[in-house]
């Protein structure tokens, strides 16, 4: 089962996305802030990382950098962004992010994008 590392500080959103992915037979590991995300990254070695850009303790850009610095595995990163963060999104792409989803997002669309990314890495 593909493993997703989901880094999102909003409890309800994290819960909802986690449940959605589980219903789609995807394994989900959650982190509620940037630091927890950075800690879980090397331990879990997910198949894909889904991260918010604005996080406590470490920004989404740091997460992107950390994921792309992993040499053992090429892990795609999808970032959540809020409207108006286009310049930060550009920065994230410069650092190697693979896709972004603007908030508010559709759960269905999110799932499709995740599955597409996973297919690309197979």
């Amino acid at each position: 089962m593909p493993k997703i590392l989901l880094i999102e500080d909003d409890n309800l959103i994290r819960k909802t996305v986690e449940l959605k992915f589980k219903k789609e037979n995807l394994d989900v590991v959650c982190a509620c802030d940037g630091r927890e995300g950075l800690q879980k990254l090397p331990l879990e070695m997910p198949d894909i990382v889904l991260t918010d850009l604005m996080l406590p303790y470490a920004s989404g850009l740091e997460i992107v950098s950390a994921v792309k610095a992993i040499e053992e595995k090429d892990i795609p990163v999808i970032i959540f962004s809020t409207m108006g963060q286009e310049h930060i999104v550009q920065e994230a792409f410069r650092l190697g992010a693979d896709d972004f989803i603007a908030k508010p997002f559709s759960l269905t669309e999110l799932t499709i994008r995740i599955k597409n990314q996973l297919k690309k890495t197979e």
């Binding site: 604005m54 809020t82 409207m83 108006g84 963060q85 286009e86 310049h87 930060i88």
Partner: peptide, 8 residues
Amino acid sequence: FRLLASSP
């Protein structure tokens, strides 16, 4: 407040 964080 996050509106201010991301607004150009």
